[in-house]
Design a protein around this nucleic acid. Structure first.
Length: 287
DNA sequence: ACCCAGGATCTAC
DNA sequence: GTAGATCATGGG
């Protein structure tokens, strides 16, 4: 990887498989917003980053080499060769081929387990614009101020002490009590997701669903997006639509979808799911 | 007014 | 263990 370091930021020269729009608009993350010039601004673990693609180069600022190596490299999973993964996947399935073409350059982010857990508790029976709004409200109300209008996502100790009525004002609806309880569980270390990272999927899932507001689907999102479980396939309403329309012959019941995809795509199943999800929402099955 | 959104929970059988 | 109702909120 050809990385150039400057006073104000970092440039990655000639980096192929990183499409900002399909990565940030694919519903895996909620704190990246598009600017008029096509760049994105996001907040990750208390750091603000502006990222832009010009031709084949990717510009990131404000950051420096040390922060890039310790945070962004890992967050964007830049050492993973998605071009190679695409090559392995293309030709297996006509629908996936089309979805891959459409979502071209989508990457799975490696996010913070705590923030991901709260975000996907909020996602239940909700829509993406509203989820983003709520998370923004929570961050502004309880998170650490960074600068200007940027606030870090609140840490467990910052959330665990707030009144339920203050949380309710952020628009979570009935999910507020789940988030509050989960914040307390994290703060009191009743659950420690970093300790779960190395354990097998079923074991991790069993722990996750003990949290209030976390069922199977949310647990799978947490595992895929923040616990390195690359083969997990969250089956949500959009993936169900895809199954109904394109795979109804092969997949008779939704509960069998996981095994079907895993048999076909192995450890890339999570990536496949995300590509299909993005494709379904943006094109084929859009109402 | 009704239906939906990256579903989970509670109750009843 | 599973089918059905209920759950806040805002947008279409």
């Amino acid at each position: 990887m050809d990385i150039k370091s400057y006073k104000t930021g970092i440039v990655i020269k000639n980096y192929k498989h990183f499409n900002l729009e399909t990565t940030f608009e694919s519903g895996q993350c909620f704190r990246w917003n598009k600017n008029d010039d096509g760049s994105y601004i996001g907040i990750v673990t208390g750091k603000v980053l502006n990222i832009k693609r010009l031709d084949n180069d990717i510009f990131m600022y404000p950051t420096n080499k040390a922060e890039f190596n310790s945070l962004w490299m890992n967050y964007f999973d830049l050492n993973k060769d998605y071009c190679k993964i695409d090559k392995e996947l293309i030709g297996k399935d006509e629908y996936l081929d089309e979805a891959l073409k459409f979502s071209n350059g989508l990457r799975l982010l490696r996010q913070d387990p705590w923030e991901t857990t709260v975000s996907f508790i909020i996602s239940a029976n909700n829509n993406i614009p509203r989820i983003k709004n709520i998370i923004e409200n929570i961050s502004k109300a309880f998170g650490t101020h960074i600068y200007d209008d940027y606030y870090a996502f609140p840490l467990p100790d910052q959330l665990s002490n707030v009144g339920i009525e203050m949380l309710r004002e952020c628009g979570l609806g009935y999910r507020d009590k789940y988030v509050l309880q989960t914040a307390k569980d994290f703060y009191e270390k009743k659950i420690d997701l970093n300790k779960l990272k190395g354990k097998p999927i079923n074991e991790v899932k069993k722990e996750l669903v003990l949290l209030k507001g976390v069922g199977e689907k949310v647990a799978e999102c947490i595992m895929l997006f923040s616990l390195d479980k690359e083969e997990v396939i969250p089956i949500d309403t959009w993936v169900k639509k895809i199954i109904d329309v394109f795979y109804s012959d092969e997949i008779k019941e939704y509960k069998d979808a996981n095994e079907f995809f895993y048999r076909k795509y192995g450890k890339y199943s999570g990536y496949v799911q995300q590509v299909l999800f993005y494709w379904a929402r943006q094109t084929e099955l859009k109402r």
